[in-house]
Design a protein around this nucleic acid. Structure first.
Lengths: 123, 123
DNA sequence: ACCGGTGTATTAAACGTTTAATACGGTCTA
DNA sequence: TAGACCGTATTAAACGTTTAATACACCGGT
């Protein structure tokens, strides 16, 4: 569980995204138990309420579910799981396009840049 | 002068970026006069102090300069102007890479997506 | 000389969001 | 039945940004 926070974006949003990334890349199995609110808070050194808020949001979106007073679990709905990856990608791409379009960069220059930077070893 | 603000990012930051985009795309000539603080505030419906803060930042970065008590002007330093475009692009690309890398998307899928969306009429 | 426009500076208050503190009720188990 | 762990709820505090109110000095044209 490794999350580095930036301070401009709400922490709970970053936590949600982190979980989505895990789900999208298959690091979480459907139905898999996730850390309790309090345990997550401990691990990430955040307030339990912030963890709660993140989980609440994920629950509303159907990404996780809670039965009784047991730690929540990743949804078993494969359809939802499959959607997560696409949504993350689309959001990232759209946001990138929106930020780059005003600068009028030739698409080939862009592609070349991305290919090079994306392929570079893990930075 | 058309700027649409999102409310997550400080307004003055968005104003600065907007000006940088104008400079990067050549919409501003070197030495060209820009609106006074108070006029910009009127145009964008923001507080004069917010305009001042944006301009101050640009002045610190050498993008604009001020002589006497006249409205500020775009720098005549072509080197700085040339740099603006590169910086905007690098920043956008780096930020995109950072957000997309955790999802493990094949680079070709990415390139294909970007080409399609970027080429789509102005959305 | 005056008036209106510049840029600049300081200080305080308002505002919304995020985070924190705390408490409550449930369930399980030793 | 007591304790520990769950999720949940309510309220308060902290924080950063923005707004606001003023004030100052400067220059230019009337």
């Amino acid at each position: 569980m490794n999350v580095s926070f930036n301070k401009r974006e709400p922490v709970y949003v970053q936590v949600v995204r982190h979980f989505k990334e895990q789900i999208a890349t298959g690091n979480f199995e459907p139905g898999q138990e996730i850390p309790s609110r309090r345990e997550l808070a401990n691990q990430l050194k955040i307030n339990p309420n912030t963890a709660q808020r993140a989980y609440k949001e994920m629950e509303v979106e159907g990404l996780i579910y809670t039965e009784g007073n047991n730690p929540s679990r990743i949804t078993k709905d494969e359809k939802i799981i499959g959607t997560v990856r696409e949504e993350l990608i689309i959001q990232a791409v759209d946001s990138f396009i929106a930020s780059i379009r005003p600068i009028d960069v030739p698409v080939e220059e862009l592609v070349s840049l991305i290919k090079r930077k994306y392929t570079e070893s893990g930075n």
